[in-house]
């Protein structure tokens, strides 16, 4: 890892100022960024830690919406998101306990790893990503592998998720990395069902609209049995072929619906 300067501001405003300098990079829990820097795949001149900003910590619930501070750890979400059981379970299954004690929701969403868990929950709930300058709808936020709508130096300060009537996340783990080989988040609302898939596509997290329509008419595991996912856009690597991942999307969706009840 190349050396860098380190600052840990206590407010969002100070963090924004610190990030304005050249080659500055925001640091959440560092569970992806630090390994990336060790491999010299990233070499920022300055790291701006967001973990000391009290305003970006914690989980609260108001009017059917769960609000999560951008620097809230996975462990905290798992413990505090009791009003949204599907999300608490997702957070409690990311990585391992020590990783969950450091990794943050804002860091995960900003990184937009195609195999990360949180993007599926954000997209399936139609979350609002709140930054220091604006609010971004989840449908506009994710823009492909490791690409988001965030501008340089923009910080995710909070995430607002409408709490579904029923929800569940099913992850088929890649056994070595424990990232999602395929993960599916199903969220049922009075207005309809949203299904978001992570781990599978070369385009990153995506909504499976055919399943959403079918589940909107009949919220049961059988509703997706006649559907299929086109394998063309799926990721193919030594862990699974395109067809394998496409098939898993359907299986995981069906399991998530069954578990959501």
């Amino acid at each position: 890892m190349y050396d860098f300067s380190f600052v840990k501001p206590g407010t969002v405003a100070d963090a924004v100022t610190a990030l304005a300098s050249e080659d500055a990079q925001a640091l959440g829990g560092g569970q992806t960024l630090i390994p990336t820097m060790k491999q010299r795949l990233a070499s920022p001149a300055k790291l701006v830690s967001l973990t000391g900003i009290a305003d970006m910590q914690g989980v609260s619930q108001s009017g059917g919406v769960l609000s999560i501070g951008g620097a809230t750890t996975h462990a905290a979400v798992s413990a505090q998101a009791g009003g949204f059981a599907g999300l608490a379970a997702l957070a409690g299954g990311i990585g391992d306990p020590a990783v969950r004690n450091r990794g943050t929701i804002g860091g995960s969403l900003a990184n937009n790893d195609p195999a990360a868990c949180y993007p599926s929950a954000a997209l399936a709930t139609g979350a609002t990503i709140v930054t220091n300058t604006r609010e971004i709808a989840a449908d506009d936020f994710f823009q492909g592998l490791f690409e988001t709508a965030l501008d340089e130096g923009e910080i995710i300060t909070a995430v607002h998720m409408p709490i579904p009537e029923a929800s569940n996340y099913q992850k088929f783990e890649q056994p070595a990395s424990r990232f999602a080989l395929v993960g599916v988040f199903v969220a049922k609302y009075a207005s309809g069902v949203r299904v978001a898939v992570t781990g599978a596509s070369e385009g990153g997290v995506f909504r499976w609209s055919e399943a959403e329509a079918a589940l909107g008419a009949n919220f049961s595991p059988d509703a997706v049995s006649g559907l299929s996912v086109a394998p063309g856009d799926m990721i193919e690597d030594l862990h699974g072929s395109k067809a394998y991942r496409a098939h898993l999307v359907k299986v995981m969706t069906s399991r998530a619906v069954a578990a959501a009840g």
């Binding site: 380190f6 640091l27 560092g30 020590a98 450091r102």
Partner: peptide, 19 residues
């Protein structure tokens, strides 16, 4: 490399000393 920081387990190879 697991240690406890402020009462919770973390991987000390993936946390900066300055943090």
């Amino acid at each position: 490399c697991t240690v406890h920081v402020n009462g919770v387990a973390v991987k000390s190879c993936t946390m900066l000393a300055a943090e």
